[in-house]
Design a protein around this nucleic acid. Structure first.
Lengths: 235, 235
DNA sequence: GGAAATTTGTGCGTATGTATC
DNA sequence: CGATACATACGCACAAATTTC
């Protein structure tokens, strides 16, 4: 069993308390001295936990004043390794997915090109809704080549996780090759599914993921609710 | 003048040495003990600097083995993420800029915090319009601390380039600390300036740029017309 | 307005644990 | 196995910014 450092346990506790609403956006956390007493550790150990919350964008420290819980919208970090579940977990929110459709069908022109497949080759398509704390924050559609992953749809249904389903198919790791971003306004269908008004701002990302050999394995679109999500590109 | 912490100066030095190719991707950095001796500081101070490189994704530490350089030097200096930045604010592919306002005024709360200035400290503000083929594609506002750059407004007016104006003020190099992206809809004022309808989708980016000592020197917003621009983040 | 108390930030020193070589 | 190297944790002191009185 991996031993968990004390500072990590403290960070997890504080993240839980933020996620549960015990500390709300704008609230001041207890002082480092108070947290030291509460957890029975040195102030530096508390500071290590608070540093973690800070780099995750969950809190912000002001010298002389205190450490404050940041307000929404939630930052969603974008970079070489993007995992929706992991990101929102780190941000102290409860992630969930709802499957809308799972199907296998012939690829269209864009999909075949993005995945380097022959025109019309069979692909698996996974469409769903991402929620944080019960609120929809994004719609997504992931397209995978069907031939190398015969059982992917069943794995996706079971795990509800792209990472785990790909792992079951033997893909240990994958990285994002590119991300394109633009702004849109919500269509009527999107607005209904996301619980927003038609015409509300939407941040659309289009990404291609590669396995470690450089073979494209996922062509994904995500439509984020602009008012609920901020993407962060960390340099 | 803001005093730079020792660990930040050490982090900047190591980043320079990585960027210059003195340490190449895959290389092992000197041990913490060696770096402590070299810089004449405690090992914890070196660790604070290395922690910064780690969270920036430049290095990766392996317990018992060492600290290893991850990124290509080009990724840091002229690499993809920084090119992304240059495309945003430097108009690398945008043929024209139109200056809307150049002024010096007291900073608001957000600006002072982003630039690590005392509340209300004086800042230079550069607002303008970016055009491609005569069509407006983005509005931008860049905010700089006024005190270190007395002639910045004149330099901006002359060069119409942030990089060149900062170079004239003695800033040889600067890097983007973070970029945040979200979707908005155009306000009436923005719609008028950009030649679009009120409520049209807007991609907003917010970025903070640091000089090589880690001091924030630019706080920039850009509002892209969603229908006319797609941003690309290449990893 | 100013002094004092509070609170986070930086830095040093020490000791011990754990993974790698 | 021993030596090396990073990780964790405690303690102390002072600096810098804010808040309180």
């Amino acid at each position: 069993m991996p031993k968990t450092p004390v500072w990590r346990a403290i960070a997890a506790t504080l993240m839980d308390e933020i996620a549960s609403g015990h500390y709300r956006p704008g609230d001041k956390l207890p002082t480092e001295a108070e947290l030291s007493t509460r957890f029975g550790v040195n102030r530096h150990t508390v500071r290590r936990a608070l540093a973690e919350l800070g780099t995750l964008g969950l809190t912000h420290a002001r010298r002389g004043a205190g450490v404050f819980v940041l307000s929404e919208p939630t930052d969603y970090r974008i970079g070489k390794r993007v995992r929706f579940h992991q990101n929102l977990t780190e941000a102290g929110r409860l992630p969930a997915k709802r499957i809308l459709t799972l199907q296998t069908r012939p690829s269209d022109k864009d999909e075949a090109e993005a995945l380097a497949l022959p025109p019309g080759a069979s692909v698996h398509v996974y469409e769903g809704l991402s929620l944080a704390d019960g609120t929809p924050v994004a719609l997504f559609r992931s397209v995978f080549p069907a031939q190398p992953f015969p059982n992917l749809l069943a794995d996706l249904q079971f795990h509800q996780s792209v990472t785990k389903a790909l792992a079951a198919a033997g893909i240990e790791d994958y990285t994002r090759a590119s991300t394109r971003l633009t702004a849109k306004t919500a269509t009527a269908t999107q607005a209904l599914q996301l619980g927003i008004s038609e015409g509300a701002p939407i941040l659309r990302t289009v990404a291609i993921n590669h396995d470690t050999t450089g073979r494209p394995i996922e062509y994904g679109h995500t439509w984020f609710v602009g008012d609920r999500i901020t993407l962060v590109v960390a340099d």
